[in-house]
Design a protein around this nucleic acid. Sequence first.
DNA 1: GGAACTCGCCAC
DNA 2: AAACGTGGCGAGTTCC
Length: 462
Amino acid sequence: MSKLTQKDAYELFHEGVLALSKAEQVGMRIDLNYLHKEKKRITFKVKHLERELHQTKLYKDWEKYFGAKININSSLQLRDILYNKYKLKPINTTAAGFGKTDDETLSQIDVLGLDLILKIRKLQKIRDTYLENFEREQVDGYIHPFFNLHNVITFRSSSDRPNFQNIPKRDKEAMKAVRRAIYARPGHLLMEADFSKLEVSIAACYHKDPTMLKYLTSEHNDMHRDLAAQLFKIDDFDRHIPEYGYLRSAAKNGFVFPQFYGDYYVGCADSLAKWTKLPHSRFSGKEGVTLPNGIPISSHLINQGIKNYNQFENHIKQVEDDFWNRRFKVYQQWKDRWLAAYQRKGYFDSLTGFRYRGIYRRNQVINYPVQGAAFHCLLWSFIQMDKWLFENNMDTKLIGQIHDAMVLDVNPNELQKVYQKIREITTQQLPATWDWIIVPLDISFEITDVDKPWADKYEYEV
DNA sequence: GGAACTCGCCAC
DNA sequence: AAACGTGGCGAGTTCC
């Protein structure tokens, strides 16, 4: 097949809009009774936490400072109390240069009551951003989130009224509280099919770095493991030992992904130190997460010649150099060429035929075509699946999409067929149709049981 | 009373 | 030389 053109891009979005609009019409069933009860429960709990907060010195000082205008939901007032009245030295600052009052910062400040502020914030977020919105948007017990293809600079999608693409997932309490409200139609089940490591795979289709291709092709190679071993200077790194599994996550989320998005060693060192609980000072040997042999990671690093944070940061700088100039040298060369070509031409094209015109920063030029084309893999699959469901008169319906995942409302009698077809479309038909896809694609599934809420999802393997 | 802004936080 | 990409949305705040 020849290179995809802007006409192909147009047709993808044209068909995409039609398929997405059908999903919008189906929508998701909402448990209104639960919504009502959960909102009341949260409101009750918030009131209780507020009463507790009223007993603290923090609240009393706050009241003195702001009088009748006191509002514990105001982060500006809180900022005033912490950094002006208490004169604490800001750990982090906002873009505008003020001391931050976010979760990460507040949990490091030793002032009684801040934990209550955070708990209240979290509960209100669940109630006001999600549950309240579902109730407002529902029609006859169904929400119909919109899926837009015309809003996003990268040619990804967005979703609104309500946004279906930011439903809590990692935080267990928030995940359960929100997803407990969402169901498939009566007698049906929910299914989510996610591409695995899609953006990394699509990036590899642009740069074709042989080391990366090997990581993506071989089951036995593990990039995050290798980076964890290098970042923390561990020779016998076995990812199945829990302490090492944790360091692998730290390497993945604190170094590898940020590097792919364009971060540099200063931010990565800071992030890695947070993950591993290392201080921004001299290491005594007692700080940090514990290794399998029982010693703290700071002690291990001291033995490796890294005696303080500056030396740690410098080590991360060296790993970064090695990452781009040796390990993924071809990837780096592609980035340089890609940027230079944009600077020459004034635009760049995605592998899916989309043309990006405009004034972009370096990281945007590198990231947009990857982010866009990765989503287009999902959209293409979504369209094929929609056609197949229609042509085969299936009762199962597509109902949503989250950048690299599709969500379906499945008739249990069709579960096997649907599962097989999604596998076929995403891992066989897609790479066969778009021959620029030069890495194997993989997809994973989650389902609920019939008439169970989305909170009760579990991994599905045949 | 609404527009535009900051800040915070949820997803990928 | 500079330094993490894309959204939506709520609350609070300020300005008009």
